[in-house]
């Protein structure tokens, strides 16, 4: 198990470097000129060249990338073109709120999704099953920013129950969290439903039934635990969707998080801030994915066993292959 974790963690390093490389490359080709953006446009040619040299912009691409990684490791992502403040400071200031929003969003997705999935599976082909599946599919067809706007129209404008923007108190969190959580619901419902349907037909469920357990015990103690394993695998993907969506949703609700900052950076063409925010959120998603991967190894002993056998099988195959080529 330790080797499994170690392998995952080691594989994580090229992933981080890869994400850094992609973000850096995109930034490298942005149409803006960092010198003009930082020092203004009224520089003489000489001053301009000097600043360009100082900022390392005349270095070859890979030298610049190396410096970028070095700085990123020291948590230095440059300064915003717009307000000249370090990007990292601005991100760290806003990160807790965005991460909490994402966490609540994913909780809503997973909890409601699993519940609907169980109900759908246990009452397969009933009206309720069709209704839940259809509603979740309609939710999956809605752009989250539109859902957010519609929720604002209904709950703030028409009913006046919840604030449309800002988070002066906890009520301000409700609409953004619901908006983020409802979109990816369909995936969880679908996976829970089909994996639950699979599990219900297994022999050990029949055994549990014949033991005389109540339906409740069968579903929650025996079936659900096994049915949830495939759901865990998509949590990372769900989170990626939610964190990606949080940018626009935060913008709509004027939520003081990284997403809203990213959206205003987009409208101001503030590239260091755009790249920094995207980098931060991507790395966060990667870390959670790593966690999910490791968790996955823990919750299912079959998977643990599978990893061992897969390795053994591979080794055996390699050995056979060598022997074959020798022969």
């Amino acid at each position: 198990m330790f080797r499994f974790i170690l392998k995952r963690v080691l594989l994580f390093i090229p992933t981080i470097l890869g994400v850094l490389f992609i973000v850096f490359t995109i930034n490298y080709y942005t149409p803006s000129d960092p010198v003009y953006a930082t020092y203004g446009t009224n520089l003489t040619q000489e001053e301009y060249e000097q600043k360009r040299d100082e900022m390392g912009l005349n270095d070859p691409f890979f030298v610049q990338f190396f410096n970028y990684v070095k700085n990123a490791a020291r948590l230095d992502l440059g300064s915003s073109y717009n307000n000249k403040r370090p990007v990292m400071d601005q991100i760290l200031e806003r990160a807790p709120k965005t991460l909490l929003l994402g966490a609540i969003g994913i909780t809503i997705t997973v909890v409601i999704g699993i519940l609907c999935g169980i109900v759908s599976a246990t009452r397969q082909k009933s009206g309720l099953d069709y209704a839940l599946t259809t509603i979740s599919l309609i939710l999956a067809s809605m752009p989250n920013f539109w859902l957010g706007l519609m929720l604002i129209i209904v709950f703030s404008q028409m009913l006046g129950w919840l604030p449309a923007t800002g988070i002066k108190n906890w009520t301000g969190w409700i609409l953004p969290c619901i908006t983020l959580g409802l979109g990816p619901l369909a995936n969880v419902v679908r996976i829970t439903r089909s994996s639950m349907l699979d599990v219900i037909r297994q022999d050990y469920i029949r055994t549990a039934r014949s033991k005389g357990l109540t339906e409740r015990q069968i579903i929650y103690k025996h079936a659900l635990r096994n049915a949830l394993i495939p759901v865990v695998t998509v949590i990372g993907f769900m989170l990626s969707m939610i964190m990606g969506g949080s940018a626009v949703v935060e913008g709509i609700f004027s939520f003081p998080g990284i997403g809203a900052m990213l959206m205003s950076a987009v409208s101001l063409a503030d590239y260091p801030l755009i790249m920094g925010s995207v980098l931060f959120i991507s790395l966060f998603v990667c870390v959670v994915n790593l966690g999910v991967d490791i968790l996955y190894g823990f919750i299912d002993p079959r998977i643990k066993a599978q990893y061992v056998t897969a390795k053994k099988v591979k080794k055996a195959a390699a050995r056979n292959g060598k022997e074959g080529s020798l022969a």
Partner: peptide, 23 residues
Amino acid sequence: RIMDILMGIPSFLFAVCISAALG
């Protein structure tokens, strides 16, 4: 591996990034 890394970036943010660079 490269494809895995690309998939690690939330796709909407990735699109925002590229779109900001491309115009």
